[in-house]
């Protein structure tokens, strides 16, 4: 992504101030819905939120309060958000742990292993990644139900421990590693697993970060699959929990806003820490067609 940071030659620079100010204004307008969300989440009254949304008061809160957050985290009736948030975290951590391990191991073997049927497996993987998740979910639900994983964490974790897209992304990266590195490790008497773990993993941090970010965002934002597979609050993630606000006749916008901010915070923190990797990893996801 460093290419993006080098200025484009040939762009004129006659009115720098006007340009910066107008870009700043446009950026603010485009991003302002997120700002409104944050502000509204600090207003305790849902009618006040709606009334002020259409005015400049939407950008301001006179008496900021964390009441919505308190309400939503301590409320344990129909929509236990503390539970939803924990559920999402559990699914995220276990999906990432397994996904990183299994995708990278498979990619390593496909790139460097000498096993029969390697080409066939690789072709099958590439072929399978045009199958959209949407077109298999109901069939998958049927399978998951019949093996007794209905309404479980496992049903939200196991299927995402390996994916053709991520195997393929890592395979591409691993194949570009110079042959000498692999040969040298073999000469040193390293086992395939040692080569994978001690040689390939450490030098593949950028590719691993890309996959971790893509898999992480995908998992955190999953909606269709958890909607189908979770029948109770037991393992329901926060995305489905937030959607639950919309079922009611009158929406508790104040609570919905607070829940939304809470759903955004983890992603936002990681984004601020690893912004460049986020941007470049999303480009890699475009490989998926």
């Amino acid at each position: 992504m460093t290419a993006i940071d080098t200025p484009l030659p040939g762009t004129s620079d006659r009115f720098p101030m006007i340009k910066i100010v107008s870009i700043a204004i446009i950026t603010f307008v485009v991003v302002s819905p997120l700002f409104l969300l944050a502000v509204a989440s600090l207003k305790p009254d849902r009618f006040q939120i709606l009334a002020e949304m259409g005015s400049f008061k939407a950008f301001w809160v006179d008496n900021p309060t964390l009441q919505n957050y308190r309400d939503i985290l301590t409320f344990s009736g129909n929509q236990p958000f503390a539970r939803y948030l924990t559920n999402s975290m559990i699914v995220l951590v276990f999906t990432l742990a397994g996904g990183m391990a299994f995708n990278s191991m498979a990619a390593f073997v496909l790139a460097w292993g000498r096993i029969p049927g390697r080409a066939i497996i690789l072709t099958a993987m590439i072929g399978l990644y045009i199958v959209p998740q949407e077109s298999i979910v109901l069939s998958l639900l049927n399978i998951v139900n019949s093996v007794g994983l209905a309404d479980s964490f496992s049903a939200q974790i196991l299927p995402f421990w390996a994916s053709p897209l991520y195997v393929f992304l890592l395979y591409q990266f691993f194949s570009q590693v110079p042959r000498d590195l692999y040969d040298a490790a073999i000469v040193d008497g390293a086992s395939p697993f040692q080569i994978y773990w001690k040689v390939f993993m450490p030098i593949s941090l950028p590719a691993l970060a890309t996959v971790a970010i893509l898999l992480g965002i995908e998992t955190w934002n999953q909606y269709l699959w958890p909607l189908l597979v979770t029948q109770s609050n037991y393992a329901r993630p926060i995305s489905v929990g937030i959607a639950g606000f919309f079922g009611a006749d009158s929406i508790y916008w104040n609570l919905a806003m607070a829940a939304s901010v809470m759903m955004m915070i983890p992603v936002l923190v990681l984004y601020l820490m690893f912004q460049k990797w986020f941007v470049s990893s999303v480009i890699s996801s475009g490989v998926k067609g």
Binding site: A40, I242, I251, V267
Partner: peptide, 13 residues
């Protein structure tokens, strides 16, 4: 990077 569920809350208002 904003989840669609969150986008729905924002745009709903």
């Amino acid at each position: 990077i904003t989840s669609i569920a969150v986008v729905c809350v924002i745009w709903g208002t």
